[in-house]
């Protein structure tokens, strides 16, 4: 008799999920080593596109774009997670209050509006209030549309946490802040992690809104990459994508090691 955690078919579906997620990445990685200029014809193994990424004429542009994308995604995801956590606490733990339904709709609004509409409207709006488009406008626009992606997982998590934990802590004379920091926050962690990660990848991937509110000379990775589409995708884009994957794996390894270290010293 297998344990209650076992369900027949769940493991194959998980494997299927991972295969589908990673299969296209194998194409990306393979073609980053393609010797020809095409992504559809194989021209032998070569590192020329990696050389091109670092020393080619567009090296500066892509380097800067990658840096902008990563910093914007980190800041937008983090601030959106903080804002979304506060909102989730209010929505889930705050009981009934006037304007709750409206708040729920408002928080999810960025999700419901087609991106091109937000893009055009934001540009008109930013111009009207005299904001110069650039790094700052991208950041606030990203922050706004990241909020629902962080909010929904966090709120879903919070709904499963009964008030009794906090009450117990308060009964033991923990201050309100202590009860929040020591009890509620750790319980909330999987929701926070999920919300932050979703916000991060949404920001990292955004093209339409960014392209409208970025201003002259500002590039993020998606806008720089979409640039290459007019002449067909070249293998240097595959090389850049592979490098981004490498950076992400570095992040994961670091997170894993830090996590393990943290667990050794309770």
């Amino acid at each position: 008799m297998k344990g209650v955690r076992y369900y027949p078919g769940f493991l194959p579906l998980t494997v299927l999920c991972l295969v589908i997620l990673y299969a296209p990445l194998i194409v990306v990685m393979a073609y980053s080593f393609n010797g020809s200029t095409s992504i559809t014809k194989w021209g032998g193994f070569s590192l020329r596109w990696y050389v091109d990424v670092f020393t080619g004429p567009d090296a500066g542009r892509f380097g800067q774009a990658a840096w902008n994308s990563l910093t914007i995604a980190l800041m937008a995801a983090t601030s959106a997670t903080v804002i979304a956590t506060a909102a989730a606490l209010a929505m889930v733990k705050g009981g009934r209050f006037r304007g709750k339904g409206a708040s729920f709709a408002l928080i999810n609004l960025p999700l419901m509006v087609p991106e091109i509409v937000t893009a055009v409207a934001s540009l008109i709006f930013f111009t009207a209030i005299g904001l110069t488009t650039g790094y700052g406008t991208i950041l606030v626009a990203h922050m706004a549309f990241c909020i629902p992606f962080a909010f929904l997982p966090i709120a879903a998590r919070l709904e499963g946490i009964e008030g009794s934990y906090e009450q117990a802590a308060r009964d033991l004379y923990a201050t309100r802040a202590q009860a929040f920091r020591l009890i509620l926050l750790p319980l909330l962690a999987p929701g926070l992690a999920s919300g932050w990660l979703l916000a991060f990848i949404i920001s990292l991937d955004d093209f339409i809104i960014t392209n409208f509110v970025k201003g002259a000379g500002m590039e993020t990775l998606p806008t720089a990459i979409f640039g290459s589409v007019k002449q067909g995708i070249k293998p240097n884009i595959m090389a850049i994508s592979t490098l981004m994957l490498a950076v992400s794996v570095l992040f994961v390894t670091a997170a894993y090691l830090i996590n393990r270290k943290g667990q050794k010293t309770p």
Binding site: V120, L123, F126, T127, A216, F226, K230
Partner: peptide, 18 residues
């Protein structure tokens, strides 16, 4: 500094939007 667009119409849209 070069800023880019992907169609004549989206260039027009951006210029008209300010």
């Amino acid at each position: 500094t070069i800023d880019t667009y992907d169609s004549n119409e989206s260039m027009l849209a951006a210029l008209k939007a300010g």
